[in-house]
Design a protein around this nucleic acid. Structure first.
Lengths: 96, 96
DNA sequence: CACGAATATGCGTTGACATTCATATGCGTG
DNA sequence: CACGCATATGAATGTCAACGCATATTCGTG
C-alpha cells in the first residue's frame, strides 16, 4: 500500500501539529469530556500563554473543539478515534 | 480510550520524526522494495546532504533500514504497516 | 459599572532543527 | 592504486516556531 501525493500533503499539516511534544501531551490529557483550560494547565505544568497557543493550533487543525460555559472555556477531543490511531502507532512501535 | 503517560512518551519522538514534511515525503516515497539514495533525491527534489540527513533520522527512529549493494546504499521501509497507520490518519482527516 | 478570574492575542526573544557547503569515506573499475 | 561515483559527516548558517511577558477581552458577581 502506498500514499498518493495528495494524501501525503493532507496528512503533513496534521503530523506537524501532532509532532510537537507539549501539544501531544495536551491532546492526550483530553478525553471526550470537555475540560477547562485551567485543568489543562495544571495537568501539563505549562504556562497559560503557552497552553492557549497550543490549544489554538489544535483547534484550527480540527483535533479539538472548544465550548464556552460561563466564564470558562472547555476543550475536548472531537473524536476519540484519533486516540485509537495514536494507540495503533504505539502498538506498532512496541512491535518493531 | 486514553493513552497512559508512558505510552505518550513513547510515541512523542516518533511523531516528531514524522512531523517534518520533507521527512514524511521521503518516507512515503519508499516501499518495502529498497531504493538507492539517488532515486530518493530525484523523487523528492531535495539536496543530497539533506536527504542523507533525514534518512539518518528515519533510520535511527526505526522507520527505515538501509542495506549496501555495491557502491549504492538502498533504503526501504521496515514494515508497511506504518503506511497503514498513516492511511488511517488520512481517512480520519477526510471524515472530520 | 467596577472588579477579578479565565482565556486570548500581539510582540520580541531564543532555541531547536532543517538546510547548505565543504569535505571525508567507501566502493567499483580501469 | 588512482580515479570517479554514491553517500555520509562536520561545521556554519538560516529559518521557523515555541515560549514568556505584557496586555486585551470576555464573562460573572458584587
Amino acid at each position: 500500500m502506498k500514499l498518493a501525493h495528495d494524501d501525503q500533503e493532507k496528512i503533513i499539516p496534521a503530523l506537524k501539529v501532532l509532532g510537537e511534544p507539549n501539544r501531544l501531551r495536551i491532546l492526550c490529557s483530553l478525553g471526550l469530556e470537555c475540560r477547562p483550560v485551567t485543568d489543562i494547565i495544571k495537568a501539563t505544568g505549562l504556562g497559560q500563554t503557552n497552553v492557549s497557543f497550543h490549544l489554538r493550533v489544535l483547534r484550527e487543525a480540527g483535533f479539538v473543539r472548544s465550548e464556552r460555559r460561563g466564564s470558562f472555556i472547555y476543550y475536548c477531543l472531537i473524536d476519540s478515534d484519533l486516540l485509537r490511531i495514536l494507540h495503533d502507532l504505539k502498538h506498532w512501535l512496541d512491535i518493531e
